[in-house]
Amino acid sequence: MCARKRAESDAEASPAADPTAPGAQTARTVLDGPEIQRALTRIAHEVLERTKGAHDVTLLGIPSRGVPLARRLAERVEQVEGRAVPWGSLDITMYRDDLRLAPARALGRTEIPPQGVDGRVVVLVDDVLFSGRTVRAALDALNDIGRPRAVQLAILVDRGHRELPIRADYVGKNLPTSLRESVDVRLAELDGRDAVLLGPARPRPGEEDDR
């Protein structure tokens, strides 16, 4: 019974994840705070455009960092349209395809807005799109909760290297990367500041990292 703490399993397990830590000098900022804000604003506008006013939209962030991103998108849509958009979180841990490769993980929160997902346009929100396995798990999780009219995907950074036939509908930044690199998203809500960092890949035995 030794589940790992969620935050650690996502980004902070290794000292190399912290750019201020020794040995992390090679991590460089590819998106700074204002750039992230502008990207989110643009995505919010795209969502409004594509969904014709986002009347049936529900934003569901994938823990951990997808959740504050979903909230920020909801705030931006509300600022533009003057109308609240339901948002929540969808934990995918129990649907992961790599559960047996690591000790049991602590669960993230799932909070579905009271409207539910049936008949809605659900926009899944996550920070990084990599192999696509997280999104695959999210689609399965969503399927067990209800039957949305449509499902779309919003992502802050698409770093490529897909392993499944999945693509994003809304992308903050396309970031071509090598598999020897890692992408770390920092968000003020969880990490104290906004940034996207590109650094050397951290070896994680047995874990398929969807970053």
Partner: peptide, 10 residues
């Protein structure tokens, strides 16, 4: 929860 934490991982 107990079953997941004991059997869900490696």
């Amino acid at each position: 929860a107990a079953l997941y934490l004991l059997l869900g991982g490696s």
